[in-house]
Design a protein around this nucleic acid. Structure first.
Length: 857
RNA sequence: GCCGGGAUGGCGGAAUUGGCAGACGCUCUGGACUUAAAAUCCAGUGGGCGCAAGCCCGUGCGGGUUCGAGUCCCGCUCUCGGCACCA
């Protein structure tokens, strides 16, 4: 808990307290109230489609409106994006900076199960509270464009997009094992399984075979990977997505099964070069061939093992200690090139949903296969021998280029390395042995050669596999978009036609699952029973709903045209505003949301509905705010409520502190003293400004110089997104102006201050701007230009070093020649002492920076 | 295990392409104003030695390159993320 502070009197002091004749107290509550009202009246935050200005789309990741409300950690991202939006507006852009609600989701449904309050009701309440809190931020959201994913007028179009995918074959049904909670009697998504237990009740999660709606995201794997290159995103996020997609190149190889002429085992491998080292095969326990090929005497053991595996959840199967288990099927595969008999096993270290669900095991060159072979006494055949690469000489301190010297050391290095490189399993590069016609071949070349030979015989081909799986798109939950599909005995699986959308979520009495693994919708007869859109005969509705990720996968396309009731968006509006220029949000969505949104965008592009195929040009991940080193959360009891801070310090101070707290992309610890410091600064700025606003002084060079330097510094810090140092720049500038203030401040200094502070502290910016006599909003003005002339000095101070140590500082003309600078430096009395009696062997001059004399003796 | 980020005063953090380490803020100390306090303003605040001028040390640790390294290279330590039987 943060130190609770006594309520401050500052904000509540009512009479205008005059502080001498020069200034007034900064009464933020009055100022906030005044400008809030004015913005409302003038429609200050409405986007003007016809302004003719260049567009800028600055988007926040829209929140799930939880019952917890916002804390100061949430404020950080919203502040960053709003400062950026306002900055862009002052630079002359028409800025779209919208906000909405990712309003479907499990918490509302769980709340309904506990209390019976309809999710629509609790969600509406939460949205009202969130909206109130978000309006406190003073962000320039255009609330006319508010989006709610649980609104039928919105999810109608989510369903529409699903239908389009269904028509394209991108949405399909598949029977597969999913996570299953035997106590809650419901299927669970991976997110709902924590450490192998049900997030709701804590029971051990098992697996259950169920029909699932899937989206064929793997069809886009290549493009999702390749197009990352075009994005201006943090490397970390790109890397996470690339890892998630997990492309690997290799080969698909077909093995015949001895005594089963119809059975063929297909494997995927990245190491076709090790084909001659395959000493056994492994099928995933769920593999369809298991039932076919298992020998009668092994059947009992195999079935027992399969049952045991199915009991484990995917999670439990992964967090085990990796001890290898498995059972021999009694069947033998035939090596595609030698015809050698290879025993076929099943083991849970082979996963059904990666590759082909079967592998050729090469224990000599794969750690997992080696462990398994060791555990079950299977043979190990070495087929790759390490070869000391020529020309490399890692031990040489001189680095590359010393090929001859390296060659001489080669013998010793090879002998030394041989002992370790001989050990199995060996996964490095080398030369083939025990591989028939391929012996002696480099293993990389052998990959090609062996695949070519297999292809010639029709027993294999080059192949690419992805770690990423297709997207399980069905949930057995109430509070989500109904999947718009109807099952007809005559016509089969039929999509609900466009003109019958939305399929509305009906009211239900009970939100608990039905017990059959179906969603609560299955219990509503009036919902389930329908007529087939094709033949008009009796039909049943799909009762599963979409996952929470559905609505957020395209919401950014809706903001440009949020009230369109004929289509999800007009092509023209979306092509005008998209791609999003700046997307601000937490890194926790690095993979799921951002990958799904990219996938949807590409699909929508391929449907011909939009011209671009990447939604977010620039992504920025803000760091979290921590308190006592931990992420803020109500359950941990370490939240700071923004309402309290606003009451005591005002909105502008909180905004500036959210930036000043640290580099925006890094986590930062909340510190009440730091907030106090920012508050002091804002008050100092206000007093300084007010002391001179009535009667500005005539301009003078020292102020011009300060102003232009400040602007140049600020611009640089804005453009590099170092917003914490941008706040520092204001502090430095105000400190410098304070030192000059006894001679007065000119009007341009004051105007610059008012305009540049406005994105950070919009209320204060407006107030100061008005105080200078303007009768229009500061945000209708322009970000000031830098006059380069004032950035140059006639005189610069340089450091004079002797042997790299600073011995004196010296002012010289900025345009001094090297000779002049060196002469002046050598003549400096402090320096002369250090040069006395020494020989100067080298002189370095870095213009505007320093002189260095290298001496010896 | 694999991939990646980070380590700078009492604290949060600044430092263009290698060029005056510690901007800015906090904390603390002293002073001004006040009957007093709060607020505000002024000065100081990395460590050591010194009356002082000043000198020496100092950016996680050990090496290296360079006239010069927080920054570049090699080898470590600790720490924080992500992935984790993906064939």
């Amino acid at each position: 808990m943060h130190a609770s502070r006594p309520p401050r009197a500052r904000g509540f002091r009512l009479p205008a307290v005059r502080l001498g004749v020069t200034g007034m107290e900064y009464r933020f509550h009055e100022i906030e109230k005044k400008w809030k009202k004015r913005w409302e009246e003038t429609g200050a935050h409405k986007v003007r489609e016809d302004s003719g200005k260049p567009k800028y789309y600055c988007l926040d990741m829209f929140p799930y409106p939880s019952g917890q409300g916002l804390h100061v950690g949430h404020w950080r991202g919203y502040t960053i994006s709003d400062v950026w939006s306002r900055y862009k507006k002052l630079q002359g852009y028409e800025v779209l900076h919208p906000m909405g609600w990712d309003a479907f989701g499990l918490p509302a449904e769980n709340y309904a199960i506990q209390t019976g309050v309809h999710p629509a009701v609790s969600t509406a309440q939460n949205i009202a509270n969130f909206k109130r809190q978000l309006q406190e931020i003073a962000a320039m959201y255009d609330w006319d464009r508010e989006i709610n994913t649980s609104d039928p007028e919105y999810y109608r179009w989510t369903q529409y997009l699903f239908v389009k995918m269904f028509e394209k074959g991108l949405a399909y049904r598949k029977r597969m094992p999913i996570n299953w909670c035997p106590s809650c009697k419901t299927g669970l998504s991976n997110e709902e399984v924590v450490d192998g237990k049900c997030d709701r009740c804590g029971s051990d999660v098992t697996k259950k075979e169920m029909e699932q709606w899937m989206l064929r995201i793997t069809a886009y794997a290549d493009r999702l990977l390749a197009d990352l290159d075009r994005l201006d995103w943090p490397d970390k996020v790109k890397r996470m997505q690339a890892n998630w997609i997990g492309r690997s190149e290799g080969a698909r190889i077909v093995f015949d099964v001895d005594g089963h002429p119809d059975a063929r085992i297909e494997v995927f491998t990245t190491r076709p070069d090790t084909l001659y080292g395959a000493t056994y095969m492994v099928l995933a326990p769920e593999h369809p061939l298991v039932a076919t090929i298992t020998a009668p005497e092994q059947r009992q053991a195999v079935e027992a093992y399969v049952q045991e595996t199915l009991k484990k959840s995917a999670i439990a199967r992964q967090i085990v200690d990796k001890t290898k288990t498995g059972v021999f099927t009694g069947a033998y595969a035939l090596h595609p090139l030698t015809g050698r008999k290879i025993p076929v096993w099943i083991a849970d270290y082979v996963l059904m949903d990666y590759g082909t669900g079967a592998i050729m095991a090469v224990p000599a060159h794969d750690e997992r296969d080696y462990d398994f072979a060791l555990a079950f006494g299977l043979p190990v055949i070495r087929v790759i021998e390490p070869v000391p690469a020529e020309g490399t000489n890692e031990g040489s301190p001189a680095g590359g280029g010393a090929a001859l010297a390296g060659g001489l050391e080669l013998g010793a290095a090879a002998a030394e390395g041989a002992g370790t490189a001989d050990a199995l399993p060996y996964t490095g590069p080398g030369r083939l042995v025990n591989s028939g016609p391929f012996d002696g071949m480099d293993n990389e070349a052998a990959k090609q050669a062996i695949v070519a030979e297999l292809a010639k015989q029709g027993r294999g081909e080059a192949a690419v596999s992805y770690r990423m799986r297709d997207w399980v798109f069905a949930r057995q939950r109430y509070w989500g978009e109904p999947i718009p599909i109807v099952y007809c005995d005559q016509c089969g699986t039929v999509a609900v036609p466009e003109d019958q959308l939305p399929v509305r979520l009906p009211d239900v009495e009970r939100y608990e699952p039905t017990g059959t693994g179906e969603s609560p919708l299955a219990a509503i007869e009036s919902f389930v029973r329908t007529t087939c859109p094709k033949c008009g005969g009796p039909a049943r509705r799909e009762t599963d709903t979409m996952p929470q990720w559905a609505g957020s996968s395209w919401y950014f396309l809706r903001y440009p045209d949020p009230h369109n009731n004929r289509e999800p968006f007009s092509r023209e509006a979306v092509n005008k505003w998209l791609p999003v220029d700046m997307y601000v949000g937490g890194v926790e969505h690095a993979v799921l949301h951002l990958l799904y949104a990219r996938f949807f965008t590409k699909v929508i592009h391929d449907l011909g509905m939009i011209d671009f195929d990447e939604p977010f040009q620039h992504l920025f991940n803000q760091g979290m705010i921590t308190l006592n080193g931990a992420k803020m959360s109500k359950s941990k009891g370490n939240v700071v409520n923004p309402d309290d801070i606003i009451r005591d310090y005002g909105v502008d101070v909180l905004r500036m502190y959210e930036l000043f707290v640290g580099p925006p992309e890094e986590d930062a610890e909340w510190n009440a003293n730091g907030l106090e410091g920012v508050s002091r600064f804002v008050n100092r700025l206000y007093r300084l400004f007010m002391a001179h606003a009535e009667h500005p002084a005539p301009p003078r060079d020292s102020l011009r110089r300060l102003r232009n330097r400040f602007l140049a510094t600020l611009n640089e810090r804005m453009e590099t997104f170092r917003l914490n140092t941008a706040v520092s720049a204001f502090m430095e500038y105000v400190n410098a102006l304070s030192a000059e203030a006894d001679k007065g401040l000119d009007r341009e200094t004051l105007e610059t201050l008012a305009v540049t502070i406005a994105p950070f502290a919009p209320y204060l910016g407006e107030e100061l701007w008005e105080r200078l006599g303007h009768d229009y909003s500061v945000f209708e003005s322009h970000w000031p230009e830098v006059d380069e002339r004032w950035l140059r000095d006639e005189e610069v101070e340089i450091a004079v070093q002797v042997n790299g140590r600073v011995r004196a500082r010296l002012k010289i003309p900025a345009d001094a020649s090297e000779e002049q600078a060196l002469a002046a430096a050598a003549a400096h009395p402090e320096v002369a002492g250090w040069l006395d009696g020494k020989t100067v062997v080298k002189r370095i001059y870095v213009p505007g920076r320093l002189v260095n004399f290298v001496v010896n003796g």
